[in-house]
Design a protein around this nucleic acid. Structure first.
Lengths: 150, 150
DNA sequence: TTACCTGCAAACAGTTTGCAGGCCG
DNA sequence: CGGCCTGCAAACTGTTTGCAGGTAA
């Protein structure tokens, strides 16, 4: 799942940074590594900051915010808005895509993908004269476990 | 487009309020009326507040925020998050549904609906054991006019 | 009359920014 | 060594809340 044929996340970030005349600092390395540890998670800047201060107590909150945006711009993170007012990010190597199914009861999220829907979205945009560049689809519902608890 | 067979927006609000033991005040009437003037718009609380203070300079910002949430809970408004950090609302009598196509260049939005996609969304949720209750789909792209300007 | 509601201002949460010193290239 | 980057704290933005007076039912 590390998508090695395009290089590791760090290589990708390094490439982006050097192209932009920016620097690969120890903080950026640490933040990226922690952000990419595991997969399938959706972290707010605050979540990530809390995890990072355990590893490096001197890390600044602002740096976490700045680095998340940086990773987003570098194509390494995707910004999500589930509807509460917190901005979340998920690891995202730009070849993979999925949307989200969210349980309104317990908050659980499940990544989903439907090729057919994806195709129809493009067509729908075209019908309105738009060239589709991206989309966000959030499906809200009640999961099986929560349904049974009722 | 006023969906009269379910009653006017104000009747609907009045019903909701009395059911909840709440009151139909002059401010709520004014805010609802202004919110429903025209259709196809997406207003932030601030947008609406600016329009309202022309009509009633004594109106308070907090009241606008409170009333938008109220209308949302009453099924008269739908909350939208286009991805910038502003919460927008659109008039929404609960029998009508559509999603949004957004031009990343000029910000124009177009309401869209595809029955086929809607059906597939339900099925997709079911396949994962979810009972779908609602969804948000935002399609981002470049509109024809903006494409030609390039 | 009695909740409920309002406007105001202060409080809040999440995020951004200015600055002085630190570090990558 | 120079410019980019960092941590800190203050500033900001959008939104919520406490309160004292006002008003619908």
């Amino acid at each position: 799942m590390q998508n090695n044929y395009l290089g590791s996340p760090e290589e990708k970030l390094a490439g982006y940074l050097s192209r932009k005349g920016m620097k690969l600092t120890s903080q950026r390395r640490l933040i990226l590594a922690e952000f990419y540890r595991g997969t399938e998670h959706h972290l707010s800047a605050e979540d990530l900051y809390q995890k990072l201060r355990v590893l490096d107590s001197s890390i600044g909150q602002a740096t976490v915010y700045r680095t998340l945006k940086l990773m987003r711009d570098a194509g390494l993170a995707r910004e999500l808005h589930f509807g509460d007012d917190v901005t979340r990010f998920e690891p995202y190597l730009n070849t993979i895509h999925h949307d989200h199914l969210i349980c309104e009861e317990c908050g659980k999220t499940v990544p989903v993908l439907d090729e057919h829907i994806e195709r129809l979205q493009s067509e729908l945009a075209e019908q309105h004269g738009f060239k589709l560049t991206s989309h966000r689809m959030y499906l809200y519902g009640i999961c099986l476990e929560c349904m049974e608890k009722k």
